[in-house]
């Protein structure tokens, strides 16, 4: 059974998610996401936390992508963007902790602002490592907590508020990726040390 609390939280947000996420954030992040997603190859690709499909217009054309999200309502909202994509996206409502895929199914995995919201991030990342081929890479665009004062306590305060209706602001995602058994290849800060891209390999 998927995590009912998390599913209900995102189902509730789904109809107004585009307005909440805002055009401003997508516009700011567009160049960085375009660069990250340009790493999509020709093999099997898993995209985690599809949401309403805000990232789909940034995907390179002609890819075959399996996209999952814990919220059926989000997947429903994404249908229009999926239909408009010049390639193949198979979207399913699914909990990352309970993916039915065989081990080593995917050549690459991509995430976008995902691990601020997965309740058990290390377990979620371990589940991703299981379905990623040995030597396969994970590419992540994530916002995390900061290591620097005064941003660190500010993000902690914000998390007390934001976690009630959406994401946490103080996750240590790079550490979580490492704890899940991935080998970190590259971390690149997009804004301060708060928004970043992470590339890591499944050592097998």
């Amino acid at each position: 059974m998927p995590d009912a609390v998390t599913q209900a939280k995102w189902d509730k947000i789904a109809p107004k998610f585009d307005a909440m996420a805002g055009a401003g954030a997508e516009e700011r992040w567009h160049p960085f996401k375009t660069e990250l997603f340009s790493n999509m190859g020709d093999g099997n690709i898993l995209f985690l936390a599809l949401g309403t499909g805000l990232d789909i217009p940034v995907f390179p054309k002609g890819k075959t992508i399996t996209a999952i999200d814990i919220s059926p309502k989000m997947v429903e909202q994404a249908q229009e963007r999926i239909a408009a994509y010049d390639g193949t996206i198979t979207a399913q409502a699914m909990d990352v902790h309970e993916m039915p895929f065989e081990p080593g199914t995917f050549d690459q995995i991509f995430t976008s602002c995902t691990f601020c919201s997965v309740p058990q991030p290390v377990k979620g990342l371990e589940a991703l490592r299981r379905v990623l081929k040995p030597g396969g890479q994970i590419f992540m665009f994530e916002h995390t907590g900061s290591s620097f004062y005064p941003f660190k306590p500010m993000m902690n305060v914000m998390t007390l508020l934001t976690e009630r209706f959406g994401p946490a602001m103080n996750r240590k995602t790079v550490n979580n990726v490492r704890a899940a058994g991935f080998k970190i290849d590259e971390v690149s800060n997009v804004f301060l040390d708060v928004v970043k891209t992470i590339k890591a390999t499944n050592p097998g």
Binding site: G22, P150, L192
Partner: peptide, 29 residues
């Protein structure tokens, strides 16, 4: 900081997420 948070909620739709939230909370503080 709270004033920053309120302003963030107003401008986030046009200006962005973390790139706005962190500076306005810091500036308010």
């Amino acid at each position: 900081m709270i004033a920053g948070l309120v302003v963030f909620m107003v401008v986030t739709f046009k200006l962005g997420a973390m790139e706005v939230m962190v500076p306005v909370m810091f500036s308010g503080m």
